[in-house]
């Protein structure tokens, strides 16, 4: 068990990468909505990533990450055949999936990858899944064809109008909710402002709205409380009580500020890493 990278696919150069990891015991247990925690090296930080897909037969887990700081930048230097130092999962409560009719899955940015696994779970249960995905332009859209494999509709929004609706996913969602009164649930995964906006759109329609929170975590098993969020006025741990919560109850403002907690250190670490790379010290 050495968490080897079996496949690496650069989805957006320098920005978003997909890795297929050899981790049979995680693949065997992983369900939609679960996440993993990995470390790149002995000195690495524990970073949580929502599972984008898994194959229990092949024993593989797929993750997709956005390069946002030192740890993900370093992860992006890994090639096929190399092994991650640590890979722990499945963590968190899986998505609650039941047969319920039409489910709209909204994904923004890298969040589309995690949304993909959940959408797949809903489709496997026999729900009609409508996917709505967005990005700044068409070259940055993720998992479009994969979603097409099991979603009868994949609706697209781009900020520049290069593909699909010219504007935000929330506008597509709103229109859809107005036209289709039989939507039983909306699932939204993406940047915090997007999930907040989705929850705002669905509220007047009274549609159950599930969001997946990407809080800062350390252990991922409920030991530390780094990931605490306010949901319905109560403190919850995203790692063990979530990561999915009722989007209408989440204090997104607090989440956004808490995500900025270590920004100075993150910048310091990233600057040092880039400096080392430029000096040819490698990783």
């Amino acid at each position: 068990m050495n968490y080897r990278i079996l496949e690496k696919k650069v989805l957006i150069p320098g920005q978003t990468t997909l890795l297929v990891i050899d981790a049979p015991h995680v693949a065997k247990k992983a369900k939609p909505g679960n996440f993993v925690i990995l470390r790149t090296s002995e000195k690495g930080e524990r970073i949580p990533l929502t599972i984008a897909d898994c194959d229990p037969v092949a024993g593989t887990v797929t993750i997709v990450f956005l390069v946002v700081g030192k740890s993900t930048a370093e992860l992006n230097t890994f090639e096929e055949g190399q092994a991650l130092h640590d890979f722990c999962g499945p963590l968190g409560k899986p998505t609650h999936i039941e047969k319920q009719g039409t489910v709209i899955c909204v994904g923004g940015g890298t969040g589309v990858a995690a949304m993909h696994h959940i959408a797949k779970g809903h489709a496997a249960m026999g729900n009609r899944v409508v996917a709505i995905i967005g990005a700044r332009n068409k070259d940055l859209l993720l998992f479009c064809s994969e979603l097409g494999n099991f979603c009868p509709e994949v609706l697209i929004a781009t900020d520049d109008g290069s593909q699909g609706h010219h504007g935000f996913v929330t506008e597509v969602l709103k229109q859809r909710l107005e036209e289709d009164k039989n939507v039983s649930e909306v699932v939204a995964i993406g940047p915090v402002p997007m999930m907040e906006a989705v929850a705002k759109v669905t509220k007047p329609f009274g549609v159950k709205t599930t969001v997946s929170l990407n809080a800062i975590m350390v252990d991922g098993i409920g030991m530390c409380g780094a990931c605490r969020c306010t949901v319905g006025g109560e403190t919850k741990f995203a790692c063990v009580d979530g990561p999915e919560f009722d989007g209408h109850q989440v204090d997104f403002g607090e989440l956004r500020l808490r995500l900025s907690q270590f920004r100075p250190q993150e910048q310091e670490s990233m600057a040092l890493f880039q400096h080392k790379c430029q000096c040819g010290e490698g990783k």
Binding site: E45, K70, V218
Partner: peptide, 21 residues
């Protein structure tokens, strides 16, 4: 738990040599 785990398990006392802040 968080403070000590960062510093002890994560060796944050040796940041940025170690990545955990």
């Amino acid at each position: 738990n968080e403070y000590l785990t960062r510093v002890n398990l994560g060796r944050a006392y040796d940041f940025p040599n170690y990545d955990t802040p």
